[in-house]
Design a protein around this nucleic acid. Sequence first.
DNA 1: TATCGTCTGTTAATCGGTTCACAAGCCCGG
DNA 2: CCGGGCTTGTGAACCGATTAACAGACGATA
Lengths: 359, 359
Amino acid sequence: MPTIRDVARACGLSAATVSYVLNDSRAVRPQTRERVLRAVRSLDYHPSAVARGLSRKRMDTIGVVFPATRESASPITSSYYAPVLDGILEVARRERQNVTLFQTGPRDGARERLSAYRDGRCDGLLFVGVAEGDEVVDALAATDLPLVIVGSHGSDARPCRVDVDNEAAARAMTRYLLDLGHRRIGLVSLAPLHGAYIPLRIEGWRAALSDAGVAPCPGPLYVEPSEDSVRDALEGFLAAPAERRPTALFCLRDVEAVRVLRVLAERDLCVPGDVTVVGFDDRADAALSSPPLTTIRQPLREKGAAATCLLLDCIAGKAVAGQEYLLSTELVVRASSGPPPDVARFPFAVPYPDPLKEA
Amino acid sequence: MPTIRDVARACGLSAATVSYVLNDSRAVRPQTRERVLRAVRSLDYHPSAVARGLSRKRMDTIGVVFPATRESASPITSSYYAPVLDGILEVARRERQNVTLFQTGPRDGARERLSAYRDGRCDGLLFVGVAEGDEVVDALAATDLPLVIVGSHGSDARPCRVDVDNEAAARAMTRYLLDLGHRRIGLVSLAPLHGAYIPLRIEGWRAALSDAGVAPCPGPLYVEPSEDSVRDALEGFLAAPAERRPTALFCLRDVEAVRVLRVLAERDLCVPGDVTVVGFDDRADAALSSPPLTTIRQPLREKGAAATCLLLDCIAGKAVAGQEYLLSTELVVRASSGPPPDVARFPFAVPYPDPLKEA
DNA sequence: TATCGTCTGTTAATCGGTTCACAAGCCCGG
DNA sequence: CCGGGCTTGTGAACCGATTAACAGACGATA
């Protein structure tokens, strides 16, 4: 491979001039420019991005960090990561930035990961679906390496972040259930330690109920991320007499919602005839469950795209530290939701009185 | 960020010694090594991969090139690219190689693309789903930059390549149809210019028929990649009297197979009762069509993984130029295939005589 | 004791760009 | 005709690592 000095020699000019032409970083006489370009073409010269990067301390590259394993399916093929990555790639391409991928498993050492991220290859980092409370994020936040989190992260350092507005979304979903006539709206949630987004969604649910003057009854039903856990958690629900138990179950993730549907089907409870079930995330299998799940769709491509824009701003020094974008979501109504069995008693037009107080 | 000289100063040694310790590329007294490592930790030093790359001419990075747009859906989210990429990432991670992604659209200039690929950032390149006959591939093949094609590529230069064994797969599928009792097996194919894999699949079909002593009747039915084209092409098929027309249609891509199913359904032809339809690729929608499609599944993760291994061998100088791996495929039998309507006349055990000659 | 080899550390060149500081040539006004 | 400013090209330092060549210390051997 020819170097810039080879080009300089070939056209009888200095390396500096060649560099100025190629980057047009200074005025060069048109005739000189032509001489340079001719030599570049005839030698088939391609500048070394590595040498360039070394001297400019900029590689025009962003790194994307995502988990190496996620349950059974590998993340890149999942319906969450792929669209996010797609949004990232789209913006990166438009802005002429390279993208390098980092997969990180729980077994990777923190120091090694830090070295990989901070070795100068990337001008900034995008963490997507990072494990909650990943120590490496905190370590990086103390660094001058620009960093944007896609999704939630329970971190003390407040890194830049792009996420959907979890609270607003949960509030909208709850409001939708209220509009259908539901008054006893149960919540099926992971324990808050599983993610910083959980308290937000819970808060949205609570706020919507409180706005409507409806008592949250009963409190959140916490489950672990396993099939059996959902089954156990629904025990109490199933044991309760129909007139006291929730007429709708708001599951904070589609994963749990689908499991809830399965358990209810086993007990011959009709959805949405006997009970409405809704989810959150609009995973690929949400549309395929029976009945198809009413849920909340995240704008995944936009999430990736917005995060990339924010990261590029950070790199350019144009962004405030700790800046956050909250994207709005879309309520996707499918067949798993409907009015409560006793809807006749609560006509639509009535603004949410607490049914218990009414009685 | 501290440099290697900062570390050297901090521990009262030379930069060379620090380098030797960090790469253990030469013997260093244990006590000295400790001094170095202590300084490294206390300064939180992370070597610059860029500077390292410049002097070693190795970045430990491979580039993955894939098309920017593919019909409507974007490639990275497709059921083809994502698993391939997943296989690539898996091997790269194991071999401690970085991965950078290049999307390339038809509008990108050849020279710019070449510069991007040859700027020293990547030690080698993986082309996945590259446009047939992409001129950049030929240009790169003339270079010393290691290169592996995933899939087919009608190129004069014979770059290293990993693909499924298209011919064997088509042969197996045809054989399967013969085993079911079919004797008139039609082929629905794209024109060969659409991809180098097409003639291979056609050849597999022809060879299986010829091995069985069955005349290919009729010849391949060429279609364009559009819904209407399939409709038009089936015109003749639909017009023919049942006793003369093919009892099975072998579509060389699932895309066409699904369209064929739609057209047949419109004409109230029963699949597989009246006619068997099979595809190739096992796209995500193949299992969801009605009836679910019998097809050939490609080992996509393996494809990506094998290509990456081959590329790393090329980089290490361990691979022969023009080396090819052909991976074997899996026949996925679903509901769209069955015995021909007149199977009674051709019992299973009989080895394939030409039914026309028999009569 | 002189010599040689081994072990371990240092000096300095190198990778291929960018960019600062300088200089030569030119035009212009006074 | 001289000095100042503008334009355009050059020389050389620099980015941060690697590594070849060298050098001093030390032990073994003759």
